[in-house]
């Protein structure tokens, strides 16, 4: 099932552009890529030679085209894990492979959507999105692709505006378009909607689902919002610290039932939400009533 809310126009257009933008000489990846973490650990150097361990023993295989949400309390190392996946940081121990090959520094197969928009203030929205294009993209193709992406994120009327002239939600959408411009095999999103107001966040989640339906790619999504994870992800991992251990590891792994877009009011998701919140150390203040604990809904891969 593909998203029925999406009109055929941008979907087809995006596909067409992403195919034509692919040249033989540069490493663009039309296909979604697998990511595999094997025993990842990260220790930051601390005071007086004592290291501060943030992550330990993270082993995980992400399938091509899967949306994986990484959930955790603040400071648990979820952003660090994402940065390691994108080659913005390197692991102290363990190996990380994308499509079977090790991650290189600032790996070109990935694109990052940061928590802040991080747009260049002296460039227009369109020029900022163009920053994400793979180097060597022919000018006309690049311009067409940028225009398509800007339409896709609904910023068509603001392409010539400077970042300071648009709202925070618009800037975040431009940032998402910039990440999509390189047609990444793995899209890394670091709390991309964290700074937005509640309603804008819900709209952005739907937008992300539309984008993912139009051009399926592997998505790693770091978030602290349980509902966002349940709404967007095929699978959720919860990072947490075990008692007496330094550094976070995978405390829970949940396969989210049902196809996207999911009913925001689903009782079954409410039960999962309770479990995840409990894993984050939040008291749910109650018991689920009349909801079966087992699920009949299909799980990923469908």
């Amino acid at each position: 099932m593909t998203s029925s809310r999406l009109t055929a126009g941008p979907q087809g257009a995006l596909r067409a552009v992403s195919n034509s933008a692919k040249g033989p000489e540069f490493e663009t990846t039309d296909a979604a890529l697998t990511v595999s973490f094997a025993g990842i650990g990260r220790t930051f150097p601390g005071e007086r030679g004592q290291g501060r361990s943030v992550l330990r023993d993270i082993s995980l295989d992400v399938k091509a085209g899967e949306v994986l949400a990484i959930l955790g309390t603040s400071g648990c190392g979820k952003s660090t894990l994402l940065r390691i996946a994108g080659g913005l940081d390197s692991a102290t121990t363990g190996d990380i492979l994308i499509d079977g090959r090790p991650v290189t520094p600032f790996d070109a197969r990935t694109a990052v959507g940061f928590q802040e928009p991080r747009l260049l203030p002296w460039r227009s929205v369109a020029d900022n999105v163009a920053l994400g294009l793979v180097r060597g993209t022919p000018k006309t193709e690049g311009a067409a692709r940028v225009a398509n992406l800007i339409d896709l994120v609904g910023l068509g009327a603001f392409a010539g505006h400077r970042p300071r002239q648009i709202s925070g939600g618009m800037a975040q959408r431009a940032s998402l378009a910039r990440a999509l411009a390189r047609n990444p095999g793995v899209l890394l999103l670091d709390e991309p909607f964290g700074a937005l107001d509640a309603l804008t966040r819900l709209k952005m989640q739907d937008l992300l689902l539309d984008v993912h339906a139009a051009a399926p790619t592997t998505v790693l999504l770091v978030t602290h919002d349980v509902d966002e994870a349940l709404q967007l992800a095929d699978r959720i991992i919860l990072l947490g610290r075990k008692d007496g251990e330094e550094g976070s590891s995978i405390a829970q792994e949940i396969v989210v039932p049902g196809h996207r877009p999911r009913d925001r009011g689903s009782a079954e998701l409410a039960e999962l939400r309770g479990r995840l919140l409990a894993g984050l150390g939040i008291d749910r203040h109650g018991e689920a009533r009349g909801v079966e604990k087992t699920t009949a809904m299909p799980t990923f891969p469908y």
Partner: peptide, 23 residues
């Protein structure tokens, strides 16, 4: 953060300087 974003999108050396740092 801007410099890191520039690097994340494949800019380095002279291109990073002329695209992000100099402006």
């Amino acid at each position: 953060q801007l410099v890191e974003a520039g690097r994340a999108f494949g800019y380095n050396g002279v291109r990073l300087f002329s695209t992000v740092q100099l402006p």
